[in-house]
Every structure is written in C-alpha cells, then in structure tokens.
C-alpha cells in the first residue's frame, strides 16, 4: 500500500481482509476435497496448481498490498519471475539431457 494510505481507507480494507480469509479457507477445503477424488496426475496437477495460484495471488494482491503498489516493486518482481522461469526451464531441460535410465527413487 502507498504511504498516502489513510486510516479511513484502512478501515475499508479490513472488510476485504476478512473476505480474502474466507476465500482462502474455502479454496483450501476445495483443493483437499478434489485431492480425495484421486484424479490422475495431469488433471490433479492442473487443479491443485490452479487453486494454489489463485490463493497465492489473493495473498500477494491484498495482504501484501500489490494491488496498490508502486512501479519499482513490480519491476523487481518481473525480474524475479523471469529468473524463476529460467531456473525451472533449465532444470526440466537438463532432465531430458541425461544419458538413459531413470533416477533411482
């Protein structure tokens, strides 16, 4: 939140915080309920990560105030996301680069 935030604005935000808490709790119950359906790995992965993505976005947007944050913070986050994606791509592509065989579990 910007430094110009006033006490009156904060009072309005408190109601949003409670609503976000309700949404996070509900989404947690949904993700666990879906897991008990024991779907195959691909749909299970999509549903679990989709719900986790929504939950993470809610926390970042409202609790971490990203919804009203300054440009400098977003600039930082864009670089972070780029480096994270590169990290994942490098790791996964290195898996396909190995010489034969499976990793011993």
């Amino acid at each position: 939140m910007s430094d110009s935030a006033h006490a009156e604005d904060v009072k309005k935000h408190v109601r949003i915080y409670i609503a976000v808490f309700g949404a996070l709790a509900a989404l947690t119950v949904i993700t666990v309920a879906v897991a008990y359906l024991h779907l195959s790995i691909v749909p299970a992965l999509i549903v679990a990560l989709f719900i986790a993505g929504i939950k993470g976005s809610l926390v970042a947007a409202y609790f971490m105030h990203l919804i009203s944050e300054k440009k400098v913070i977003f600039a930082l986050l864009i670089f972070t996301v780029i480096f994270l994606v590169v990290l994942f791509v490098l790791t996964i592509s290195s898996y396909h680069d190995q010489i034969g065989g499976h990793i011993v579990p």
Binding site: A48, G56, V59, F63
Partner: peptide, 18 residues
Amino acid sequence: WHFVDIVWIFLFPTIYLL
C-alpha cells in the same frame, strides 16, 4: 510472513496432495 504463507500454499498441495 505472507511470503512464508505463500510458500506453504504451494508446498502443501505439491507434497501432500499430488
């Protein structure tokens, strides 16, 4: 603290549910 929460939000389904 919210960051620690977000890590758990991704960690929980990844490790426990999948």
